[in-house]
Structure formats: structure tokens, C-alpha cells
Design a protein around this nucleic acid. Structure first.
Lengths: 161, 161
DNA sequence: ATAACATTGTTGCAAATGCAACATGTATTT
DNA sequence: AAATACATGTTGCATTTGCAACAATGTTAT
């Protein structure tokens, strides 16, 4: 007697069970939280612009492509976010040379530093609350794992930035 | 003598140093990898549709809102993805009752199961390669941490689904 | 020297996404 | 019974996003 075999059955790992999909879902939760916080607290700036402003504060002398590589968006959209931040008076742009090429760099204005500081302070309680749900060791492992993943993927895939 | 104090200096946690921002960056890497894989391998279906198909395979008898809650997109876009999958013949939709209310449920077709199986098999090597960079224990901690985060956030924020 | 290529930034366009409003039908309240 | 609120799904619209093409400029190869 021949046993029936169900060839449709998938015995291996499902994508929706994979760490990378869980990562995507979790990231979507984080984004929703961030948007809710901004809606309550700030109408002058978007979460995306806030992240760019913080990136600029923590890394001086970047050209636009450098910024794009840090925030992982393409050059087009990075330029658009900077346009918006400049129009709102939170950054100033100037031309500079990098490897003998003309590039556009940015300085954060006083207003930019102020809004960055204010928002950072306002989000501090939430950040502490999020960190408190983990042990210190688990946070280290989480962050190390995420970095390992990024390093591994960046060897396989070209980000086109 | 009075020491100068730099009121601009932010001594607390920067958003771009927070776990949730690292999560967003890492998720963007994962998405780029996924898109690259699909470009090489499959033109019939998008990564998003693949994830929905896998969700349907792993969870039977869902109405559209249930699916939306699982994939964390709104009802509008969930419906649109299902429209596309139905038009391509990978799912069939039917009407059913849930809590005495009319809902639309879906069945995966034979073609749907086939493409899901084929793609899952093709991505297996990548998945194993990604898992191999972690210890088993670290994977468990990573996944547990992500789940903790989602649980914590879902208590604070309404997803509007 | 000239052609081919690389780097940086911008523009236009199309696809993805979220949100508000609507239609339909059910449950609850008064 | 009527009114109100809720659940589900759809449509329209605005925003976000990515990609390809382009312009301008510098580098490399032939």
C-alpha cells in the first residue's frame, strides 16, 4: 500500500515566521507609536525630519549622499527632506568640496537645535519606558543582533545610494 | 567665576541611537534584500503579496480585517492586495458570517499554494544564511525582545485597524 | 586629447501607503 | 421603535517613497 503524500505541505520555515518579518512588523509598531507621539506633541516637523535632524546633530560635515547612506533613503528623498528642513529654518545649506567635487553640506540652525532638544526631552520618558521592559543584557544582545544583520545584508545587497 | 553652560548640548539619549530607530534601519535593509531577491527570482508576485499569501496559508478562515491586523496595514490596502492576488488567481474569495456579520474570507488556490511553496523553497538558503550568523540563544532573545516591544507598544498606541 | 565612466544632486513619474469619508448591515441604548 | 453606536469593506485623495533619467562636474582609459 502506498502512503499518500501531500506535496502541498510546506515543512520548512515560513517567511512570516522569520526574524526579518518579525522585524518588519515590530518596526511598523514603532513607527505608529512615533507618529502618535508627534501628533500629540509637534506639528512643525515630521518624524522623518526629526530623524534627519538628529542624524545631522550627531554627524558633522555630511554631504547629502552621506546623509542618505545613514538614513537609508535614496538621494532624491534625502534632498527633499533637507529642502523642507531648510524652508522651515531648521538647517542652512552651503556648498563645499569633497574629493575635489562640489557637494552640499548642512548646518543646523539655532532653531533646529532647539526643536531637536525639546523633542528629544519630551520623548525621553517613552524611551526609558521602552528600555525598562528589557534587561540590560537583552538590550545589548538585541542591538548587537540588529547590527550583525545589517552587516550581513549589506554584503549581499546593493542599496543603490 | 561662573562656568559657561552650553544649553544646546543634549546629554540624553538621541533618537538615532535608540533601539527603535536601529530597528527601522535594520528593517529597511531586510526590505531591500527581499526586493532584490524578488527581482531576481519572481515577477508574478510582490514581496507584500507573498507575505499576505503566507499569512493566509498559516491562518485559515480570516476575514479581511483579521488579515489587516496580522500584517499591520489598514483595511483599504489589505483589500487592495487581496484584489491583486485574486485577479492573479492565487486566492479565491467568498462571503461568510462572523459574529452574525457578513465578511469576506479567502481560500488559497492550487496556484497560490504552488507559488508560495516555490518561493519559500527558493528563499530557504538565504534564510538559513541569515540565521547562521546568530547563536540559537541570541535568536531566541532577539525574537522574544521584538515580541516584548510589540506587546508594550500595542498597549500604548491604537493601530486604527 | 578625447571618450567613457563615476559622483553628486535634481526632476518627473509611478507605485505604495495611510487617512477620512462613505455604504451597508448589525448591536445597543433610550 | 427610533436613534445611536459599532463592525466591515470600499473609494477617493493626499503623502511618501523609490526608481530612472538627466545635468553638471570630475576622473580614468584609450
Amino acid at each position: 500500500m502506498i502512503m499518500p503524500t501531500n506535496t502541498d505541505d510546506i515543512k520548512i520555515m515560513h517567511y512570516t515566521d522569520s526574524p526579518s518579518y518579525e522585524l518588519e512588523l515590530t518596526s511598523r509598531y514603532c513607527k505608529a507609536l512615533l507618529i502618535q507621539l508627534f501628533n500629540q506633541v509637534c506639528s512643525e516637523i515630521s518624524p522623518e525630519e526629526f530623524a534627519v535632524l538628529d542624524t545631522l546633530y550627531c554627524n558633522k560635515g555630511l554631504c547629502q549622499r552621506d546623509i542618505a547612506k545613514l538614513i537609508l533613503k535614496d538621494r532624491a528623498n534625502t534632498g527633499r527632506v533637507l529642502d523642507s528642513l531648510e524652508k522651515k529654518g531648521f538647517i542652512k545649506r552651503y556648498n563645499d568640496l569633497k574629493n575635489n567635487r562640489m557637494v552640499r553640506k548642512t548646518d543646523i540652525t539655532k532653531e533646529g537645535r532647539e526643536i531637536l532638544k525639546e523633542l528629544t526631552l519630551r520623548f525621553q520618558p517613552i524611551h526609558e519606558r521602552m528600555c525598562k521592559i528589557f534587561s540590560n543584557e537583552d538590550i545589548l544582545i538585541l542591538r548587537a543582533s540588529l547590527k550583525k544583520m545589517r552587516d550581513a545584508i549589506s554584503k549581499i545587497v546593493d542599496m543603490h545610494i
